[in-house]
Computed example of a mutant assay.
Amino acid sequence: MTLEELGSRQLADGPFVNADYCEVSTATRLLGDRWSLLVVRELFVGNTRFTEIQEALPGLSRGLLASRLGYLTRLGIVDRRVADGTDLRAKYSYALSDSGKALGPVLTALGDWAAKWKPPTATNVGGEAMLDLEQLRESFDPSAMPADRMQIQFLLSDSDAAWLRADRTGVRACRGVNEGSPDLVVRTSLSTLNGLYWGQSTCREAIARHDISFDGPMAYAQAFSGWFANRPAVRGVESDGPDRSEGGDAEKVHF
Rank of each mutant, 00 (worst) to 15 (best):
A66Q: 14
A114S: 13
D183A: 07
E134R: 13
S139Y: 03
M130Y: 10
A144L: 07
R165L: 09
C174A: 13
Q151Y: 12
D98K: 00
N178A: 10
D160V: 05
E138Q: 14
L65M: 05
T188M: 03
A162C: 08
D98A: 05
T192F: 03
G100T: 01
S97Q: 00
R137D: 06
V125T: 11
D87T: 08
T188Y: 04
A162Y: 03
D132F: 05
C174Y: 11
E134H: 11
A83K: 02
M130G: 11
G180D: 07
G104P: 04
L65P: 00
V82P: 00
F140Y: 12
G176C: 08
A162R: 01
G180T: 10
K118G: 12
E179W: 12
V171F: 04
F140S: 02
I152C: 03
R74A: 05
K116A: 15
R81S: 11
L164F: 06
D183S: 08
S61T: 07
R187P: 04
A83P: 03
N178G: 08
T121G: 14
S139Q: 04
L133Q: 07
C174D: 12
N124I: 09
F140R: 02
S67L: 09
R187C: 12
E128S: 14
A90I: 02
W113S: 04
L110P: 00
L133Y: 06
D160K: 07
L88K: 13
L75Q: 03
P182N: 06
D158R: 10
T188H: 03
A166R: 01
W163M: 10
R172I: 10
D160N: 14
T188Q: 04
I152D: 02
A129N: 10
A173F: 01
P120D: 14
R68K: 15
A147I: 12
D148A: 13
G170N: 05
Q151M: 15
A144K: 12
K116L: 15
A109L: 09
A115E: 14
D158Q: 11
K116S: 15
R149W: 12
P182E: 06
A102Y: 02
F140T: 01
A66D: 14
R165H: 10
D160Q: 15
K116H: 14
P120K: 11
S99K: 07
G76H: 04
G176E: 09
L155I: 13
S97Y: 00
L131V: 08
F140G: 01
G176D: 08
